[in-house]
Write a protein that binds this DNA or RNA. Structure first.
Lengths: 205, 205
DNA sequence: CAAGAATTTTGCGGATACGCAAATTATTTC
DNA sequence: GAAATAATTTGCGTATCCGCAAAATTCTTG
């Protein structure tokens, strides 16, 4: 049906936990920037002693000092925590032949996911057949965090979004929107319309 | 050419600083999930007293308890910290009519960006005309952080990627890959192939 | 509005983090 | 290779965190 090949992967970390080791990450980042403990101490306003103990894992720093350190390093917490710990998956690729995608059926759409076996992709791409013919078919408009974009392949579709007048799209047209608005697509013709759909579920920052 | 409409936006926050207020964010997140302090306490293993003092800002928690709280909430640190402080841009949308996208010409491709006036979109979608006929035309393979996915619309294309044998794609086929591998697309026919291209430049974490 | 339950806040004691300064270890220089 | 300098680690005292249990507050319910 579909397959992904993976070239090179590092072992997975304990998962959800915010950080395997703050100390190691901090040390790695500091050394990569060629900073001494005392230098970072002056830069961040956290004593070298404390930095030392954090790096050696014999102390769980206060949020206040974490913030100071980040400011001193000019970085965000997330980057600091994940530094050096990137479970990088290099050189992957994935192929889905025409018609071979995983299919999801809903009352209104028929979705065919393309290359959805890749876990780390932050977005989804699927081919959708728009079957709904009118807004009445929808009980409520879909709304969720993230954003999406459609490109019409064939047929004509009308896009309803919460705060706006509907927009009609012909083949070749593209439409992007904040998924937080309720939204729905309907076909304007008897024949189901086909659209390419890109969907990113991440919170819009 | 294109236009974006914006519905509602909140003012921007002080930027780089790791967190304006951890307490406020935590409280917001906890309340949004309809959790009581005691409930979160059992969930996270941090006493309700401590949680209370964190929320009211009279205590700078240890990294250890921050981690526990995140685990209890099933969230990452970054999301927790930025919760409620999102410079959210709600209800935007953007339309590009067929042929109206911004065009970028390269020796090998003709790219038409779709809905590229939306700044906060973490990915790019464009329609590409593949003109290159052989790998020789490329000096070096493109490589950059991120990942991309193509869906063939018409024509037949061959995808070269650094560590693999080339893959041939026919209309309807879709192919996703890590952009860190060198990559190039060529048309297998005289007529330029048309592909829909989704490109996410963010570092694969 | 009073009685009851649930949620949040406040004392308090023990544990821990943090900065200063001294001691140890690593690096450089003559 | 010894002396000097730089970098990191180790006592130690104070300030702060954190959990337990009790007090105060808010939310139900008759």
């Amino acid at each position: 049906m579909w397959k992904t090949e993976i070239r090179d992967s590092a072992e997975t970390a304990p998962a959800a936990a915010p950080a395997p080791s703050l100390g190691a990450s901090l040390k790695a980042m500091r050394l990569d920037r060629a900073l001494t403990l005392t230098a970072l101490a002056t830069e961040s306003g956290v004593s070298a002693a404390t930095l030392s103990r954090i790096e050696s894992g014999q102390l769980s720093p206060t949020f206040e000092v974490i913030a100071k350190i980040c400011r001193g390093l000019g970085t965000g917490i997330e980057e600091l925590l994940s530094y050096g710990t990137m479970k990088r998956l290099a050189g992957w690729r994935s192929l889905t032949r025409a018609g071979d995608g995983r299919v999801i059926e809903t009352p209104h759409y028929r979705l065919e996911l393309l290359c959805d076996d890749v876990i780390r992709k932050p977005y989804l791409v699927f081919r959708a057949e728009i079957r709904a013919r009118s807004l009445d078919a929808f009980e409520t408009l879909q709304a969720h965090p993230g954003q999406e974009q459609v490109v019409v392949q064939s047929g004509r579709v009308r896009v309803f979004t919460e705060h706006y007048a509907p927009v009609d799209l012909a083949p070749g047209d593209s439409f992007a929107f904040d998924s937080a608005m309720g939204h729905a697509l309907v076909s304007l013709e008897a024949e189901p319309a086909i659209v390419l759909w890109v969907c990113d579920l991440r919170e819009t920052p």
